[in-house]
Design a protein around this nucleic acid. Structure first.
Lengths: 267, 267
DNA sequence: TTTACCACCTTGTCGGACAACAAATTCTCT
DNA sequence: AGAGAATTTGTTGTCCGACAAGGTGGTAAA
């Protein structure tokens, strides 16, 4: 009963075609958020599919698609003839499968994000950058270096590369100062891309490797040279599958616990 | 046309209720395998949903659920009113979201897996082990240490912990020698659990961190003390959500490239 | 030549029906 | 009264058919 009531006030989004996202995605997102926010505790049984669909004002088909996605991602488990339950250990915290930015990662760890030693510049694309972003070698790119803070402690050093053509083209011309101002205030590059360029990041592909801090990075993070570092090299793609940004993230060892839910299917 | 023909010989699995797996899962698995094996190349358009469903002999609803899962996992992309396409960069290689064992990881990298310095023993559960496996502190556990080879090169050192009660209880009693023999021949612990104990691993939760090789590990992997190591601590769960095994995997830096597909949803 | 419209193909959503499965309940026989 | 079998109930899994909504390309009109 009390579980049912949690879904009550959601007759929303009926004619809500604002952002073009699909119904299934919005329902999936809604339920995932309820689990991540702790509204639906682990091991609680959800209402049956029919009730759920009527409560959220969608058909059972769409509800089932959403549930299938959530099940594959490890948030819920469905038992034929029994019911649907929130997983015992849903992948809520620091889940690498969810492409949240560094700022949110820090915030979800319950700490206060910050930023120092911001450095904004333009540089010609190196071979690696040009390959990953599918642009010409030497093409001008925007480079954004930041030392990220969690409760005033240096935990991550990030370097972002974006083709300069995104900000400086016949359609728009955004001065670097605007970008710097926005980043200093909001801290999130994703938000900037969405709000100012209406550019939506669809997904990222990350490459994870252990690393040893060189002089430059150890200086940025104020740790000893040779300290353990987790290096994440990530390329972000837009809805069309085109690369948008290349990011290098250097994490101080054990500053965060990164988890991955690994589905055993495909052998 | 040639794309259609690839689905031809699959009127299978109609009355095939062998393992109790759902139709949606089998279809998902089938398509994912086709993509991973290169039968469906990136950016190729799939047949429309109706044709696909008839070709694979399932309803359109089932097909759609499978497609939803594959889309969320980054293998395909659907465009309303246009069609369904294989992603530009499908997460096929060394995808950490798929819980394949080390043996298969090595094999999928095109190298020959091997194993040396196998060590099988029983030890009382430490605090960490007892916590992760939900067993009593000091309860007897099976410990399996292995140095894994890729083309005769030492690349991973793995340590697996399993409650001894799995192998030694009123229902069954498997001597350690049997386990050792099986592992030496087949190398895969997952296979052993499935075949001999009919225990299916449903998923795992991995924790990733950079590490520095101590004396013991550097000796096992024959690298310098203090070398960079990628440490993956993983707990595997069965279908009921109960923990089955705890594994520590120590990867030589850059022996493999680990990728993760990160979906940008949930912000 | 350019533009507006329209037909066609695709995916998205809906609603209902039935099958398969699990658990609780009831019934029956001892 | 107790134990086991049959039934009922509730849930998820699968199927079918219909229509809405978006995209593309061709066609006809301006």
């Amino acid at each position: 009963m009390s579980v049912l009531s949690k879904f009550e006030p959601n007759t929303l989004w009926e004619g809500d075609t604002r952002d073009g996202t699909q119904l299934v995605q919005r329902v999936t997102e809604h339920l995932r958020k309820m689990i991540m926010d702790g509204e639906l505790l682990p091991e609680t049984q959800l209402p049956n599919e029919f009730d759920l669909s009527t409560l959220l004002n969608v058909s059972r088909s769409t509800m089932r698609s959403a549930l299938a996605i959530l099940e594959q991602a490890g948030f819920i488990q469905r038992r034929w003839g029994v019911g649907t339950f929130v997983t015992k250990n849903p992948p809520t915290y620091n889940n690498l499968s969810l492409n949240s930015g560094v700022t949110q990662l820090i915030r979800s760890s319950g700490e206060e994000p910050g930023c120092v030693e911001l450095l904004l510049a333009t540089r010609p694309a190196s071979e690696r950058v040009s390959n990953q972003l599918s642009i010409e070698l030497g093409a001008p790119t925007l480079v954004l270096e930041r030392v990220r803070l969690a409760n005033d402690q240096r935990v991550v050093f990030t370097v972002d590369f974006l083709p300069l053509s995104l900000f400086h083209n016949p359609n728009c011309d955004i001065p670097l100062a605007d970008i710097e101002e926005y980043i200093l205030e909001h801290q999130s590059f994703y938000d900037f891309l969405r709000q100012r360029l209406s550019l939506e990041i669809h997904h990222g592909i990350a490459w994870i490797r252990p690393y040893s801090a060189g002089d430059y990075i150890s200086d940025k993070l104020q740790i000893r040279t040779g300290s353990n570092i987790l290096h994440i090299e990530q390329v972000d793609f837009d809805t069309n599958g085109e690369p948008v940004a290349l990011s290098d993230e250097y994490y101080v060892a054990d500053a965060f616990r990164f988890y991955i839910y690994r589905s055993t299917q495909g052998a």
